[in-house]
């Protein structure tokens, strides 16, 4: 089939619509405002992207299998609080563990805490995944249930008090630099690399795409559908926990409402970047593009002097338009 020049241009515009709109916005903002195209601004942007990307990466696995994870935001908050309580200065007056055994072992090594928090959240994610895979509870509902449960657990655990007074060993994740970029950014880079590896180089990744593409066919082809799904939801929660840890380091504190509704941003970012919400399609680059688009949009609008409240409307419109364009790729020819 020969395509005319015009068709090719149209195809190109449709296939890369999101990115093109973004580039135009960046150029326009750069030309019309001061300080937008500065290294500092971009470092800031990257830091804001870092934990959002980790959330989006976690949620992308769920979306690729045709599901979602509504417990994401609450899991982020729980992870942030859990990490916070274990990493407070000993002489901090509002210390969570005032006395007793826990007071004597905290603060712990931040890296140990990170792994511990990820492990604990992964267990909760595994429970969600178990209901989805083995009891066929739809992901929307089971992750909704886990959202409530994890919020309750977080409330009981923290007594709803905000946390602060972190040791420098924790906040250095946000302030520390390596090759000019903060540790948070390197963590996001690392998680992207790990996720890319899982999606492309392991059978787990291939099974994930197969389940999203056609779950019956996956079953028939001998794919261990149930355990794969369980792992995906456990993995997602581990990612959320890490995002919570990062968010705590960046803010220097945490409360149970940290990360609230970030899962929605994550799903939106995935969809914007081209992860098909009906399953089967999506790459790590999709999550990166999606998160970048959303963050760039926020910052650009801020620089252009758009009212902070009106920015939500703009973001909503961009999601509408971008997804309508993106979906053309798949619904066109029938």
């Amino acid at each position: 089939m020969q395509k005319t020049q015009k068709q090719k241009v149209t195809d190109f515009l449709i296939n890369n619509g999101v990115i093109i709109v973004m580039i135009i916005l960046v150029i326009y903002t750069g030309l019309t405002t001061k300080n937008f195209l500065t290294p500092n601004n971009f470092l800031n942007l990257l830091a804001n992207m870092s934990y959002r990307l980790v959330i989006a990466l976690g949620i992308s696995g769920c979306v690729i299998t045709g599901g979602c994870d509504l417990s994401g935001g609450r899991m982020v908050g729980f992870g942030a609080c859990l990490a916070g309580t274990l990493l407070q200065k000993q002489d901090y007056s509002g210390r969570f563990f005032k006395d007793g055994f826990m007071a004597s072992i905290t603060p712990m090594n931040p890296f140990v805490v990170l792994l511990l928090v990820m492990l604990i959240c992964a267990c909760f994610g595994a429970i969600t995944g178990w209901f989805i895979a083995y009891l066929s509870v739809p992901p929307f509902i089971s992750t909704l249930a886990m959202m409530e449960i994890i919020y309750g657990i977080g409330l009981i655990y923290t007594g709803a008090t905000p946390l602060g007074g972190y040791i420098t060993g924790y906040t250095i994740f946000s302030t520390g630099r390596f090759l000019g970029l903060s540790w948070l950014i390197w963590m996001a880079v690392g998680m992207s690399a790990i996720t890319w590896f899982i999606y492309n180089m392991t059978r787990h990744g291939k099974y994930m795409y197969a389940i999203g593409g056609n779950v019956q066919a996956a079953e028939v082809a001998g794919v261990p559908v149930k355990i794969t799904l369980l792992i995906i939801y456990a993995k997602a929660s581990a990612f959320f926990a890490m995002a919570g840890f990062m968010l705590g380091a960046k803010a220097g504190g945490a409360s149970i409402n940290t990360g609230l509704s970030y899962e929605m941003e994550g799903i939106a970012a995935c969809a914007l970047g081209g992860v098909s919400v009906t399953g089967g399609r999506g790459k790590v680059s999709s999550a990166i593009v999606g998160v970048a688009v959303l963050e760039l949009l926020k910052v650009a609008l801020q620089f252009l002097g758009v009212d902070a409240n009106a920015q939500y409307i703009a973001i909503g419109i961009v999601i509408f338009v971008a997804i309508s364009l993106d979906i053309r790729k798949y619904v066109q020819k029938k």
Binding site: K206, Y207, Y209, A210, G213, N214, Q216, A217, A218, E219, V220, A221, G222, V223, S276, G280, R281, Y330
Partner: peptide, 16 residues
């Protein structure tokens, strides 16, 4: 219905 993975490549369809 339960044979092909429509949105995946030939490689993945054979390899699965």
């Amino acid at each position: 219905g339960n044979g092909i993975f429509g949105c995946l490549s030939i490689k993945d369809n054979v390899g699965i």
